[in-house]
């Protein structure tokens, strides 16, 4: 890749002084590529965990056992009311101090890496919002549908899985899309626990090359691109799943 971009970006630097070092310096390119890969993988894992947590939480909220409902309510209160940076640091330095160490052949490393903690912490953080989003979706499903399934002799579980949830998901999609986008952007704070995602990678570059403006622009463009991709996917999903007449 460098042989194509290097002449162009070196010329850009000579003529305008703009220093996009990752496009002509091998070490910086390596940092950028690690950053892109880690960031995309982190976003994917965090969104997946948050969706699973959200669905499980929304189901648990409807449980007959008050203890379970109480636990979900506490979880939402705690994770929606504390900043994600604080949660990250708490998980990594607080809980991280109690996780077992693994022998790597002469030295020790923690069982859960900083990437692992970022997925857990941000997944649970995003999940707390998703629970509420799914709950709102479930509540938007008209009572008449569950009366109809009852008449058809569906069990409560069957009703939830085959009728309520599929409809609730469709009601949830717009709010879900904005939460997932916000969560994808929040992954940038994983740099505080040294996860080598984009913000970490590019701040490393700008600290060494002092090309702060250029690298911040690159970072800005990267997040716009990622958010645009998520928006398109969610928009497509909404179109695909639309049921004529539902919610009108």
């Amino acid at each position: 890749m460098l042989e194509f971009t290097a002449p162009l970006f070196l010329a850009l630097q000579q003529t305008t002084g703009l220093n996009f070092s990752p496009f002509f310096d091998e070490y910086d390119l390596g940092r950028l590529m690690t950053g892109v890969q880690t960031s995309l993988l982190l976003i994917l894992c965090v969104l997946a965990v948050s969706l699973v947590v959200g669905l499980l939480g929304a189901a648990a909220q409807r449980s007959r056992f008050w203890v379970l409902r109480f636990l979900v309510a506490t979880y939402i209160a705690v994770f929606r009311n504390t900043p994600p940076v604080v949660q990250l640091l708490f998980f990594y330095f607080g809980l991280g101090a109690f996780t077992p160490q693994v022998d790597m052949g002469g030295w020790y490393e923690p069982m859960i890496s900083s990437f692992g903690w970022a997925v857990i912490a941000l997944g649970i953080f995003g999940g707390s919002y998703n629970v509420e989003i799914f709950r709102a979706g479930i509540e938007a499903v008209p009572k008449a549908t569950s009366e109809a399934t009852e008449a058809l002799a569906f069990s409560p579980m069957q009703t939830f899985v085959h009728v309520t949830m599929p409809l609730a998901l469709r009601f949830s999609l717009p709010a879900l899309a904005s939460n997932l986008i916000s969560l994808a952007k929040t992954t940038s704070i994983a740099y505080v626990i040294a996860v080598p995602e984009m913000t970490y990678a590019l701040s490393g570059v700008w600290n060494d090359r002092l090309n702060v403006g250029e690298m911040m622009t690159l970072l800005f463009v990267y997040y716009i691109a990622v958010v645009a991709i998520i928006s398109v996917i969610m928009g497509q999903l909404e179109k695909r799943l639309s049921v004529p007449g539902l919610g009108k």
């Binding site: 330095f93 900083s114 040294a194």
Partner: peptide, 20 residues
Amino acid sequence: LMAFAGNAEGKEALRSGKCV
């Protein structure tokens, strides 16, 4: 390399065994 935002975090990470 695992670079943290501050000295305190970096050294705490060493103390709790997150790096060598």
